Computed example of a mutant assay.
Amino acid sequence: MKVLIVSDSHGLVNELQVLKERHKEEAELFLHCGDSELPIDDKAISGYVVVQGNCDYYAKYPEETIQEVNGKKLLMVHGHLYGVKSSVSRLLYRAKEVGAQIACFGHSHYLGMEMIEDVLFINPGSLRLPRGRMEKTYVILSVEDKTLKTEVYDFDKGLLPELTAEFPI
């Protein structure tokens, strides 16, 4: 099963719609890790599972969501309530508490994937204001029986194959 993960689009509308159209045949689940800055009824965010970010003033999304993805639990939060700009340790505790093998978050605008204590942490970066890299990134996660595969995409250039990674589970 494939999951598209995006975060920190900060008011972008067209880009979210383009992603849905571009990946509708391959991704079965579309996740937005917060700071969309869009109202819940905005057409651009329709079809995404969304969590509340610290800049989501116009809507009240849930603070977290847990999704079942091909038999694995995926926890999604924005990250501001877990101090992810300095450490993912508090988010690791929450992931362990809910039994999640995958934790998706945003907030920092830094792209990154890392396996810590059997939990894969994914921050897809930012479509609007990336930090650390120039590319406006999002991630497609493939959840298989024994592996998790992450593919990083630049909104404009497509797949960045050098950033593809696989993690055993």
Rank of each mutant, 00 (worst) to 15 (best):
E15S: 10
C33D: 03
K73F: 04
L19Q: 06
T164A: 11
D154I: 01
G83P: 08
S7Y: 09
R128L: 11
E166L: 13
E97P: 04
Y138F: 07
G125R: 00
T65C: 14
N123A: 04
Y93P: 09
S46H: 13
I140C: 03
P161C: 02
D156G: 10
Y58D: 12
D118F: 04
G83S: 09
I116A: 04
K24I: 13
I140M: 07
G71Y: 03
T137H: 00
C55F: 15
K146S: 13
A44Q: 07
E162S: 02
D8C: 01
I66D: 06
P124C: 03
E63C: 12
L141W: 00
G47L: 10
E64D: 14
Q101N: 11
D156I: 02
E166S: 14
Y58L: 15
I40Q: 15
K149Q: 06
S87Y: 04
R128C: 12
E97R: 11
G79C: 05
S7I: 09
G79M: 04
P62V: 11
A44S: 12
Y48L: 12
H107G: 02
L111D: 11
L148Q: 01
H107V: 00
K136V: 00
P62K: 08
L160V: 10
G47R: 02
F105T: 11
I140F: 04
V152C: 02
E63N: 13
Y82H: 10
S89K: 15
Q17C: 12
F121P: 03
Y82Q: 07
G71V: 04
Y138H: 05
A44W: 03
R90K: 14
V139D: 00
M76I: 05
T150Y: 01
